[in-house]
């Protein structure tokens, strides 16, 4: 986020390997953005194989539409837009074939001591699984907000553009989304 402090605790993102067979300028785009795009698809779809397919398809779409890309928009935001639309279409087609119960938002609004406790975890490879289970239980809007805000390259304004709301609305809902995540995460232990 624009006003965020640098995250000193996490290492810098490791750029993906530059695919030798891609056009040079597009290879740079892939190298710089494939990790957040793959991660967003992974957490929205919840399936590594589907996320691989989605990341591939997103970059194919981006390649085809590169001539239409307007330089006044941030390319990361543009790629996220393609990813969100692609994953939304996939999820809708799955939903048409399968019925899933909607997440009960009221559960996350209840006062709960767990929401006040810090997020602690034993660092193991199950972190990803716990985050996935937590996100899967959240309302769609909260899930999306948290995933987008986690990208420090996006401002609240850009998150608002991607989720069709104002930056102020993003700030307001983010507080509730954090609370909901913290409560739900504690239940995955």
């Amino acid at each position: 986020m624009a006003e965020a402090l640098p995250d000193l605790a996490s290492p810098a993102p490791e750029p993906a390997v530059l695919p030798a067979g891609l056009p040079a300028d597009f290879a740079e785009i892939y190298s710089a953005h494939s990790q957040p795009i793959f991660y967003l698809a992974l957490r929205l779809l919840g399936d590594p194989a589907q996320a691989e397919d989605a990341a591939h398809d997103v970059f194919v779409k981006a390649f085809r539409k590169l001539g239409e890309f307007r330089g006044d928009a941030d390319i990361r935001t543009w790629l996220y837009r393609i990813t969100l639309n692609h994953c939304s279409n996939l999820r809708q087609s799955w939903a048409a074939r399968n019925i899933h119960p909607a997440a009960d938002e009221t559960v996350f609004e209840r006062p709960n001591d767990a929401s006040q406790s810090p997020l602690r975890l034993l660092e193991t490879k199950e972190l990803g699984e716990r985050i996935q289970r937590t996100l899967d239980g959240l309302p769609e809007e909260y899930r999306l907000l948290l995933l987008l805000v986690a990208d420090q390259e996006l401002s609240y304004e850009q998150v608002g553009q991607l989720t069709n709301q104002t930056a102020d609305a993003v700030r307001g809902k983010l507080h509730r989304a954090r609370r909901a995540f913290t409560v739900a995460f504690a239940k995955t232990a």
């Binding site: 995250d7 605790a9 996490s10 290492p11 993102p13 490791e14 993906a16 390997v17 695919p19 891609l22 892939y30 494939s34 990790q35 957040p36 793959f38 991660y39 992974l42 957490r43 590594p48 691989e52 990341a55 591939h56 810090p118 997020l119 602690r120 975890l121 034993l122 660092e123 972190l127 990803g128 985050i131 948290l146 995933l147 805000v149 986690a150 990208d151 420090q152 989304a177 954090r178 995540f181 913290t182 995460f185």
Partner: peptide
């Protein structure tokens, strides 16, 4: 044991640990 002040920090940490499979490229 790591502690994260916010869910975004935890998600960001998870993102940085997640590698894009070479098969995609």
């Amino acid at each position: 044991v790591r502690e994260f002040a916010t869910p975004e920090e935890m998600i960001r940490h998870d993102l940085l640990q997640t590698k894009v499979p070479g098969a995609v490229g």
